[in-house]
């Protein structure tokens, strides 16, 4: 979020999208460079991590899977904050931020689901189990897609902003409930044939690369989010320019 990179007290300067564009343009090249560097280091560390005695080289998937799962939740938190920004402070950039974060969050969630599936295949012998954790991530994915579908369905940005903010917040409040109920559902019905993913105490050899990867992923999110916000602002500018052009064309 742009607000996080700004000095406190100057937040309201960002209300001006032109100002935001200037700052985003200035920050993005550096941010992108740091992101790539961090990702390269993280990947190097991950590939040099020792093989797990149980999982073999498939443990490498963890370095993608776990940060993706974290980011899927962080992106939604950013969206929920942006939704508050829209509803409470009516900040013009809050809606832009929400819209821009949704596809990125959905992509991370998708990545988490895919990598989890690839990881699970050798361990569980099947691509998917209706385990409580997997299921609640799937539900989160559906919520993301629902928000994106809603954003696409309403063309007028100012009308869409409120609707999106409300849905995002209701979803945010509901996610812990879903998680809770799914946990409860699954402990009732979980058949014994499906082995659960064990929770080994993590060795430092895994932990450090994982931390670097998590940082890299956070930076990826920030970079993509800023870029997408910039695109969204440009898209709106294009829209209003076209409307202006329509108004000026040949009188009424």
């Amino acid at each position: 979020m742009a607000e996080l990179t700004a000095k406190a007290g100057s937040i309201w300067d960002f209300a001006n999208p032109a100002r935001f564009m200037g700052i985003a343009n200035a920050v993005l090249p550096g941010l992108a460079a740091v992101t790539v560097a961090c990702l390269a280091i993280g990947l190097w560390m991950a590939f040099n991590a020792p093989e797990d005695y149980q999982q073999g080289s498939s443990v490498l998937i963890m370095f993608i899977h776990v940060p993706s799962a974290w980011l899927s939740m962080m992106a939604y938190t950013v969206m929920a904050l942006a939704a508050l920004g829209t509803l409470v402070w009516r900040h013009p950039l809050a809606d832009v931020s929400l819209r821009a974060a949704a596809p990125i969050g959905a992509a991370f969630t998708f990545l988490a689901l895919i990598t989890g599936s690839l990881w699970g295949k050798p361990m569980w012998g099947t691509w998917w189990v209706w385990d409580a954790r997997l299921t609640s991530v799937l539900v989160l994915f559906i919520i993301y897609l629902g928000i994106i579908a809603l954003a696409r369905a309403i063309e007028e940005p100012s009308v869409a902003a409120r609707a999106l903010a409300i849905v995002t917040l209701v979803g945010y409040v509901n996610i812990p409930i879903i998680k809770f109920s799914v946990d409860w559902w699954n402990t009732l019905h979980q058949p014994a044939s499906v082995s659960r993913l064990g929770r080994p105490a993590m060795d430092a050899a895994f932990l450090y690369p994982l931390m670097v990867m998590a940082l890299a992923y956070t930076l990826i999110f920030l970079t993509l989010h800023l870029m997408n916000m910039r695109n969204e602002i440009l898209r709106r500018r294009l829209r209003s320019m076209r409307m202006l052009a329509a108004r000026e064309a040949g009188g009424a």
Partner: peptide
């Protein structure tokens, strides 16, 4: 479609 497919295991249980 995805929502319908997802809802079924909740109703019938996660027996693969």
């Amino acid at each position: 479609f995805l929502a319908v497919v997802t809802v079924v295991p909740f109703a019938v249980g996660p027996d693969l």
